[in-house]
């Protein structure tokens, strides 16, 4: 795939930006998300997680690399493929797994499911599966942040197909017109369900050029190289924090799963870069990490995951009075 050429660009920006604790943290975050998603994939056929799932396998480095730049008070929103984004910014694992099982202990008490995740304490203010919808909603978070003269940054993740929606263009225009503090993160996995990018845009069109044409500073790089994602996001987010207004990043990536469902397509396809394998080899080669660390961490993750699944399975479904409980908000204004 053509995006592999960009690996150099991504590597270039990380020299002074990363240190070994951060490298380890990012690697372990990718590994943790991968293992969680694999467990969902494994148990999905039991037919107890009865909601559509869009697994993040293959795209984990993006959420991890971006989130490593976020601070308390920052906001995150996402679309249908949001598991990695939710987990990478600190979304609660137990509540996430319980949500997939539709249980009252889920992050929305089971009312939302995989496509409607939220964890306010982590700044993750919601994901929805209508493509592009959260682009404008997140722009509204940034609008209100700026109006209140607060310093926090909003990050919104969306896929390449969302850039075919009108709301994408409208939002970029508005964000630029008021110089709003938002980072638009386009994960370009070159697929819209099963329709390839080449069938949806002229081959000479690049998404990053669209954002650039709004006079929004924009980068395009490899989304499989976590440190590159981190470094580029750092550069852009620091600019946003300095009041430079909206920024955009297109990250080339590959989903290693079917569009919707548990099937993992595999890591061995020609030209595919698995962000987990790549990072593991790199950190072992660079002697940042040793295999024993990984083995210990793997055991910790497995235990954490097992507990989360056990708790979710044992939890109750929401009580029947929840059916119509929150159609309208009843709290004080």
């Amino acid at each position: 795939m053509s995006f592999m050429k960009d690996k150099g660009l991504a590597d270039l920006s990380l020299k002074k930006e990363v240190n070994s604790p951060l490298q380890k943290k990012m690697f372990f975050d990718i590994l943790r998300i991968r293992r969680i998603e694999e467990e969902i994939s494994r148990q999905y056929s039991d037919q107890e997680m009865r909601c559509p799932v869009h697994l993040s396998i293959g795209q984990e480095a993006i959420g991890v690399g971006v989130s490593a730049n976020l601070k308390p008070g920052d906001y995150v929103m996402s679309g249908h493929r949001s598991h990695a984004h939710y987990l990478a910014c600190g979304g609660n694992l137990d509540k996430f797994i319980a949500e997939l099982y539709g249980k009252e202990t889920g992050c929305t008490n089971g009312l939302g499911g995989s496509m409607h995740l939220i964890d306010k304490s982590a700044g993750f203010l919601g994901s929805v599966p209508i493509i592009g919808s959260t682009i404008s909603i997140a722009t509204g978070l940034a609008f209100e942040t700026k109006r209140r003269k607060k310093s926090n940054v909003t990050v919104v993740y969306f896929g390449d197909s969302a850039t075919e929606e009108g709301v994408f263009y409208e939002s970029l225009n508005f964000a630029k017109s008021l110089n709003l503090p938002i980072l638009y993160v386009c994960e370009n996995n070159e697929m819209s369900v099963e329709t390839p990018f080449s069938k949806r845009r002229h081959q000479q069109q690049k998404i990053v050029d669209i954002a650039n044409s709004f006079n929004i500073e924009s980068l395009c790089s490899d989304g499989q190289i976590c440190e590159g994602v981190y470094g580029n996001a750092k550069y852009l987010i620091e600019g946003i924090r300095c009041g430079e207004g909206p920024k955009f990043i297109e990250l080339m990536t590959t989903k290693l799963v079917e569009h919707c469902g548990p099937k993992i397509i595999g890591m061995e396809s020609e030209g595919v870069c698995d962000p987990l394998t790549y990072y593991k080899e790199k950190l072992l080669n660079d002697k940042i990490i040793i295999q024993k660390d990984i083995d210990v961490y793997e055991m910790d993750i497995q235990e954490e995951i097992k507990k989360a699944f056990d708790k979710a399975k044992k939890a109750k479904f929401p009580s029947r009075d929840k059916l119509k409980a929150n159609i309208f908000y009843k709290g004080e204004k």
Binding site: S136, I137, T139, G140, L141, F143, E144, V167, E170, S171
Partner: peptide, 19 residues
Amino acid sequence: PLSESAMAGVMLGASLVGA
């Protein structure tokens, strides 16, 4: 801007965090 769709979404977002 004459962007009814995005602006309704923007206002929704703003309303989530205090507006």
